[in-house]
Amino acid sequence: MTCDETKLLLTDYWSQTLDEKQELAFEAHIATCEACHAEAERLGVLWNNLALIPGVSKEFEPGVNLRSRFYETLGAYRQGMEAAPKHSLWDRILALWPKQPAWQMGVSFALLVIGVGVGTQLRPDRQPSLNAQPAAPELAQLRGEVSSMRQMVALSLLQQQSPGERLRGVSYAYQAPSSDTEVLSALLRTMNQDDSVGVRLAAVDALRQFGSSPVTRAAIIQSIAKQDTPLVQIALIDLLVDLRAKEAAPELVKLAADEKVNASVRSHAKSAIEKLS
């Protein structure tokens, strides 16, 4: 065995994972090579001590909250999955997608060629009557499934611990239809209870698409007094003005008169009352 070969076996030697033949050859070499013997000893001490460093030793445990957070997330994810249609057309299409990149490229290219071919054949100037054809029911079903997938992702992300993930959840919520009450209630909860001001502000913006619903407008009006940050309060007032929510006037009058409320918020409320009247 050479010195270079010995170096490659050092960690196996320290971990005692060499087979008998390798171990004999290794020991025979270090018995005759002083440099390799010294290096094996020196680095071996460091190797053993590495496992004793506080914070990385096996006795070092994560907090108990980690487990409960994981099970909460898993529960939310399963709930989202159960709410989505099972064995949907979309799942079946995804299952057909190959896992190997080479196949993926091949299938993509083939689909592109087919797409260009079909598109050329079905150009409106050649087949004007096709425009009058109604969308196939499968397409409508597929759209419905994609929509519920987005809903599931939005709801799961909004329950995440990381503010970044919750922000992503809010951005998914934009794609939900305005009739989606589950996403609406998740956004309202986020607006009222999220720890992060940034996430709350994003939720306020996302609620704009649900603004035609009286429930949403009432929840936004009630939320102003609950907020502890002027930034969010001002965003809520602006949203009410944009939605032309005249029913917010009494609450805004109360806010403008309350001296405990931040001065900028009060002046914003006054200006909103004028705009809404």
Partner: peptide
């Protein structure tokens, strides 16, 4: 420690999200 716990949570969520891959 706190960041590491967040990251563990993130890894398991990513595994769920990308389970099909």
């Amino acid at each position: 420690r706190e960041l590491s716990e967040d990251l563990v949570q993130d890894v398991f969520f990513r595994m769920l999200r990308y389970r099909a891959s």
